[in-house]
Design a protein around this nucleic acid. Structure first.
Lengths: 343, 343
DNA sequence: CGTTAGCACTCTCCATGTGAGAGTGCTAAT
DNA sequence: ATTAGCACTCTCACATGGAGAGTGCTAACG
């Protein structure tokens, strides 16, 4: 592919801008008039022909305007997108909200999802912070009612997993605490296999618990520990054309199915904390995400817990706004985490 | 309104049946042919005129077929719906799934949401079990990392609330456990106000914690304690006509906003455990739920924890199937709860 | 009196046709 | 390299005209 001239890049940017705004294909005449380029429609046409040649824009009908291709969006995002920042008053507003909820990590995560959905006007997803391959630190067993017991497992990185259990018989709190202490003492610092190996030393209840702990720990190596929070589904439905298509349903189903998200996040987030990843049109072989794009970033305190924030929306998305929102929220979450975990 | 003849009721039922299946208005001729009533189209027309008079069906166009009105659906659900049960093999399958996940209440809740979504082919929502106005039972503080501490509050009914906190300074596990024990000892059995009153006896950390506990406890009186689980959003989008309309977006936004659901559930679930409530077309003044219906039921062990299961779908919904699914799942959950809490 | 047959009428839906508008590629001139 | 002009294409919006489905009404029938 030849390199584009500056004007061709401008035209590509304008086509994308206009298409994102209006959802309609745009032709040479309208483009030249609407954006007051200093050149004639014929010139624009020539440049458009070059862009079409390069595979960056496409004509749906022989004589309809041009719309961006996925490659067009990619070129735009990688090379043309001016590095916008959120307006500083919005930034202040957001960070204020976060500091308001000072005490609660889960609240931060929910807030991040809500803020991202609002600013990107698309669906957002956020995973709680989590540190992979962390050793066992602490077990707590809390009697709630009857045979119902809450098991809380704390890992060295600061991860917390909990599960409600129904035991075979009733135990009182003292018995449970004692068992929990013994297990904590014998397992501290060990990984999933190490914990499993301790089973032999305990009675039936202990063995069962240790089996569960090892289970939870081995599952805990995924990108996201527990829930994946999301928000703003209504936003993506508001997109007229998107709501109709099959893709919308696919995307929604995706958000309901954790395992899929895990996989995507894992693949997309290798680059590490800070950098924003943009996946356009189900890039990387996610058939289900045709017509969708994701903007993702990792946040967290390196070494301790990290998590992911992201936005899922139609390919026809305002990337500038979304990327700056994701970048800002990820940065803010990182700061909060460092502050909270460093203690 | 006059009482309907038996044949008129049959015709109403058939209109609803056909409309739910096809989504299209149906006229006298098609109805008589398709369902082989033993009478002529003219007779059907007369009866349809009576139904229209009674406000149970409606003509959108002067000469288009009839569609059910909300009142029509209500009449149908209240008086005509044959009390269907799920096929017993489906029941076996479902209960098998539940007993498979024997240990985990949260898993039951998730499973209920998933099963309901699947069987009703609409969106489902389920709240975890919860007992209102329960006194304080037990506090646990678990150090996770840095200044991050997990606070777990257990109430007498078996409710568990947890919150991640960022404390002002770092404490080690022993200090935290000690504080938790002292607070537990002095607050056990008390309600929110009673707990708050204990604050004076403690140091700064203790006072802060007690404030938080009282806070959590007073919030805990809502129908749902924590999250409201939902599933099957993709199902309601699959409904062609529904996805287009504003109503779909409203409904979705509702599912994302907890406070709304709380309110609805609270109002709708007064009747108590067991009976299935059907709200048709946003009955009861929920403007946002125009074009939507909900099928709701309470589950749980009377006296201990109860929760709600429900389905949210378009007014044009297969009520028979949905109601039997909701009834069965609610019953199953109740059995499980009684079994687990009684132990 | 409930039911039925027949009739005239209405209204939607679909297929077809037409003109305006927007967009295109190409060529020749600047 | 850019521009003006031209002939052409294709979609979209709108009008037109049956075909089909549905309706209400009236009169006849058991």
């Amino acid at each position: 592919m030849d390199t584009l001239t500056e004007r061709q890049e401008t035209i590509l940017a304008l086509i994308i801008h206009d298409y994102v705004e209006t959802g309609e294909a745009i032709g040479s005449k309208t483009l030249a008039e609407r954006y007051g380029l200093g050149v004639s429609t014929a010139t624009v046409r020539n440049d458009m022909a070059a862009l079409t040649q390069a595979g960056l824009v496409r004509q749906l009908h022989t004589s309809g305007g041009r719309t961006p291709t996925e490659d067009g969006y990619r070129y735009f995002v990688r090379r043309l997108l001016t590095e916008t920042e959120l307006p500083s008053d919005e930034k202040r507003l957001i960070s204020h909200q976060f500091y308001q909820a000072r005490a609660d990590v889960d609240e931060w995560v929910r807030l991040a999802a809500s803020v991202l959905a609002q600013h990107s006007r698309a669906a957002s997803l956020v995973t709680p912070p989590h540190s992979p391959r962390a050793g066992f630190k602490h077990l707590e067993l809390i009697s709630t009612q009857g045979r119902q017991v809450l098991m809380v497992i704390v890992l060295l990185g600061g991860d917390v997993r909990q599960q409600m259990l129904t035991l075979a018989e009733t135990f009182d709190q003292a018995q449970l605490s004692h068992t929990a202490e013994r297990i904590t003492a014998s397992c501290v610092g060990k990984d999933a296999e190490g914990v499993a190996a301790q089973g032999a030393a305990f009675d039936e209840l202990g063995r069962e618990l240790i089996r569960l702990i090892a289970d939870v720990m081995s599952r805990a190596d995924a990108v996201s520990g527990g829930e994946i929070y999301h928000d703003g589904l209504a936003n993506v439905l508001a997109q007229r054309d998107f709501a109709q298509s099959e893709s919308a349903r696919h995307a929604l189903r995706l958000l309901e199915e954790r395992s899929f998200l895990e996989e995507i996040l894992a693949k997309a987030l290798s680059p590490g904390i800070g950098s924003v990843q943009v996946l356009i049109g189900g890039e990387g072989g996610w058939e289900e995400l045709r017509d969708c794009s994701m903007v993702l970033a990792r946040y967290g305190a390196a070494g301790y817990a990290t998590g992911a924030v992201g936005v899922l929306g139609p390919t026809r998305m305002a990337y500038g706004r979304t990327i700056s929102a994701v970048r800002y929220v990820a940065g803010l979450m990182s700061d909060l985490m460092v502050e909270a975990f460093a203690g």
